[in-house]
């Protein structure tokens, strides 16, 4: 979504020594609704940063709440939010999007979180509790003091939560065990540092856990080419050669020389303008093709060649 919301920082709370909770609101506009697992994109001086929403989507009172762990100085996004943003400040925010939705068909939801990876699950658990569905949480942190939302979770989801504050080896062994002997229809959700995710993913593969029942938090920022470069194109069937200039899309260049490639969205979403690649390197900017399809195909509305490419047209 192209538009942004101008929001005000209503409240800043200390969650732990290094984690702050920010509440954004607006007096003027109703904030768009969101689903459990959704994130917002903040537009900060150093670029766009995405953070999971921690509020309950069913009890949203025109507020977005995020929790941010400080992992940089004020030149980085988290440090900037911690050091330079105060109550009453304004901030540009892209409306919520969701690449980590709950699979509501699940008979049972199991959440594995490490550190600040807890954030999407705070929203998910609140939602599931409201609609009366079954879930449990396994949450690893270095200690109670560093454990974000510890008290909140104890207050609201105590019987469904297990905390892992022990030494690393013991933690890993116990988490692996929690993955085992799950009943059919259980969906697993993972969020945390890459090492944590890798260990649990690998173990789930070892257990032959069906892949479609395992979900990872994945931010998928749209690929945007900052400085598009001109490139040359050879059409092998119609035997034409032409250049796509830096300000032009391949789709437009094709139309200019009367090669009609159908199109619809011009955003790399619908897949209509797909063409086959004969040879050459391509920067893929679409969110449609699978990794396998990208080997021999490209969407001409957003993706570009590097140097010289050949297309089967």
């Amino acid at each position: 979504m192209a538009y942004t919301l101008q929001l005000t920082v209503k409240k800043i709370e200390h969650e732990t020594d290094t984690i702050k909770k920010f509440t954004f609101t607006s007096d003027e506009i109703p904030l768009p609704p969101f689903g459990a697992g959704a994130h917002v994109t903040l537009h900060l001086p150093m670029g766009k940063r995405q953070y999971s929403l921690v509020n309950n989507p069913l009890e949203m009172k025109n507020e977005y709440v995020i929790a941010v762990k400080k992992i940089s100085d004020h030149n980085g996004g988290s440090g900037y939010l911690h050091e330079c943003i105060g109550q009453g400040d304004n901030i540009s925010v892209s409306p919520p999007d969701n690449f980590f939705p709950l699979r509501t068909e699940a008979k049972h939801h199991v959440f594995f979180a490490a550190g600040i990876g807890i954030t999407p699950f705070v929203s998910m658990m609140a939602y599931l509790k409201t609609i009366g569905r079954s879930f449990e949480l396994h949450y690893a942190a270095s200690g109670e003091r560093e454990c974000a939302f510890h008290r909140h979770i104890q207050n609201h989801f105590r019987s469904k939560s297990t905390f892992y504050f022990m030494k690393r080896e013991e933690k890993i062994a116990k988490l692996k065990k929690a993955l085992q002997n799950r009943t059919m229809g259980t969906h697993i959700y993972l969020c945390g540092p890459p090492a944590f995710m890798d260990i649990l993913l690998e173990h789930s593969h070892k257990l032959r856990y069906p892949e479609k029942f395992i979900h990872e938090e994945q931010f998928q920022p749209a690929v945007l080419i900052e400085n598009p470069q001109p490139f040359f194109v050879n059409l092998v069937k119609t035997k034409k050669t032409f250049m796509v200039s830096s300000g032009q899309t391949l789709l437009d260049a094709l139309h200019e020389i009367d090669i009609y490639v159908p199109y619809t969205c011009r955003m790399g979403v619908c897949g209509t303008c797909e063409v086959e690649i004969e040879e050459g390197d391509v920067v893929h900017c679409d969110s449609f093709l699978t990794e396998e399809e990208k080997v021999g195909n490209m969407l001409t509305c957003v993706s570009r060649g590097i140097g010289h490419i050949k297309l089967r047209l």
Partner: peptide, 14 residues
């Protein structure tokens, strides 16, 4: 399959 994939990738609110 492609139409289904297109629908499954429609973003919230659009």
């Amino acid at each position: 399959d492609k139409v289904e994939r297109f629908i499954s990738k429609i973003r919230p609110g659009t």
